[in-house]
Simulated scan of single mutants.
Amino acid sequence: MATRLVISPKRRFEIPARLDEATLAAAVARRLASPEALPAGFAAPPPVVWVDGADEVLVHLPDVRVALRDRLIAVSVDLECDQTGRETLVMPFAVGGARDPAGLIAATESLPRGDGLLVGRWGRIVQDAVWAALLGVIGDYATRLNKLPFGFTAGDGVLSLRAAKPAELMQLKTAVRALVPTPPRGPSR
């Protein structure tokens, strides 16, 4: 069972090793807001306006949703502008699973799914922000443990975070290099 976020004396959220969908959605939403827009405590951040050049979009942070399945993180974010009204963009990220961890690597589609006008203008920006938020979650978890982010795995309803000491990562790197065969060198030309 995943645990809930805990607020530290410094008014920062302490990220647990396992997060359920609602907890991860709250953590992602908080990272999509500007620090001055964050309410105290556990309250969800209010909708915020993102500005890029002359364009603006309202991002409905209280309605960020996450679905976790085996090796899949799907994040949905509602955006609203004058041209489209309120629409949902969905970003699926394929990550490692419990039996096949992939570290901090994910595969995703080139653009989020959703309304073409919003995707064309804001899709890449939102997708990059969501990915940065996911990396921020594991970064905060690792920092709390005085370790380095090592990876996350998705299972049905749970995201598990992994962190390691620098020496542990060096040992792993050495072990992986020992397993990877060196390609034969051909004659020089």
Rank of each mutant, 00 (worst) to 15 (best):
residue 183 P to W: 04
residue 65 R to Y: 01
residue 123 G to F: 08
residue 134 L to Y: 03
residue 91 M to L: 15
residue 157 G to M: 09
residue 182 T to N: 04
residue 129 A to T: 06
residue 45 P to M: 01
residue 40 A to R: 14
residue 9 P to S: 14
residue 134 L to Q: 10
residue 43 A to H: 10
residue 167 A to N: 07
residue 11 R to K: 15
residue 57 V to A: 08
residue 14 E to Q: 14
residue 87 E to V: 15
residue 40 A to D: 15
residue 104 L to D: 07
residue 82 D to C: 04
residue 52 D to I: 07
residue 16 P to E: 11
residue 149 P to Y: 08
residue 81 C to Y: 00
residue 63 D to W: 01
residue 180 V to H: 01
residue 184 P to S: 03
residue 97 G to S: 12
residue 100 D to G: 09
residue 139 G to C: 06
residue 60 H to V: 08
residue 111 L to Y: 10
residue 61 L to N: 04
residue 83 Q to E: 15
residue 49 V to T: 15
residue 40 A to I: 04
residue 54 A to K: 01
residue 42 F to R: 13
residue 41 G to S: 12
residue 157 G to R: 06
residue 151 G to T: 10
residue 189 R to D: 01
residue 93 F to Q: 08
residue 102 A to Y: 09
residue 70 D to W: 01
residue 172 L to Y: 02
residue 151 G to N: 11
residue 112 P to N: 09
residue 74 A to E: 14
residue 59 V to C: 12
residue 189 R to S: 05
residue 127 Q to G: 09
residue 43 A to F: 08
residue 44 A to I: 00
residue 167 A to H: 10
residue 118 L to C: 08
residue 73 I to D: 00
residue 113 R to T: 14
residue 133 A to L: 10
residue 55 D to H: 14
residue 151 G to R: 09
residue 136 G to M: 06
residue 173 K to Y: 04
residue 189 R to F: 00
residue 21 E to Y: 03
residue 188 S to L: 07
residue 119 V to C: 04
residue 79 L to K: 02
residue 151 G to D: 08
residue 69 R to C: 00
residue 118 L to Q: 13
residue 15 I to S: 02
residue 170 M to I: 04
residue 133 A to Y: 10
residue 91 M to E: 12
residue 124 R to V: 13
residue 106 A to W: 06
residue 183 P to E: 02
residue 76 S to K: 03
residue 117 L to I: 15
residue 102 A to D: 13
residue 95 V to E: 04
residue 19 L to F: 06
residue 78 D to I: 01
residue 118 L to I: 11
residue 23 T to N: 00
residue 55 D to A: 14
residue 67 A to V: 13
residue 41 G to M: 09
residue 178 A to V: 02
residue 64 V to P: 05
residue 143 T to C: 05
residue 86 R to H: 04
residue 183 P to A: 12
residue 158 V to L: 10
residue 124 R to C: 08
residue 189 R to Y: 00
residue 83 Q to I: 12
residue 73 I to S: 01
residue 88 T to H: 02
residue 144 R to N: 07
residue 97 G to W: 09
residue 41 G to D: 11
residue 98 A to C: 11
residue 59 V to W: 07
residue 64 V to I: 04
residue 124 R to W: 01
residue 55 D to W: 13
residue 127 Q to R: 14
residue 177 R to W: 03
residue 8 S to L: 13
residue 23 T to W: 00
residue 33 A to P: 04
residue 136 G to F: 07
residue 76 S to H: 03
residue 9 P to K: 13
residue 68 L to K: 01
residue 102 A to F: 08
residue 71 R to W: 00
residue 61 L to F: 09
residue 147 K to M: 15
residue 141 Y to E: 02
residue 43 A to R: 11
residue 154 A to S: 15
residue 105 I to Q: 12
residue 138 I to P: 03
residue 116 G to E: 15
residue 130 V to Y: 05
residue 63 D to H: 12
residue 120 G to E: 14
residue 115 D to L: 11
residue 131 W to H: 05
residue 44 A to Y: 03
residue 82 D to P: 07
residue 127 Q to V: 08
